[in-house]
Amino acid sequence: MEPVELPRRGTLIEFTVVYQTSPQFEKQRPLVIGIVDLNGARVVGQVVDADVDRLKPGAEMELVYRRYFSDGRYGIIYYGYKFRPVITGGHD
């Protein structure tokens, strides 16, 4: 096995809106959890900056670096990838 860098853009396969979360995510409720296909590698991730009523499988998504949650005021802040729809016609 060798590590492979995945593309940062992909396609939304399916998503759900989650109203019951773990304690760390309580303030961010509801969460949108989706499956995104990154050139054949499918990963689960949060979908952000999306209008859920207009979000549809097949949408083009891009990976963004965001905060997951933090351990109180002085503790560790956990960061990682999330996905957002690519806004066509807009600017990056």
Partner: peptide, 19 residues
Amino acid sequence: FERHIGATLASEAALLANM
């Protein structure tokens, strides 16, 4: 890759239900 990013068991069951 799942729990830490916010996925729950219910969320994956929901994804399957949608599919």
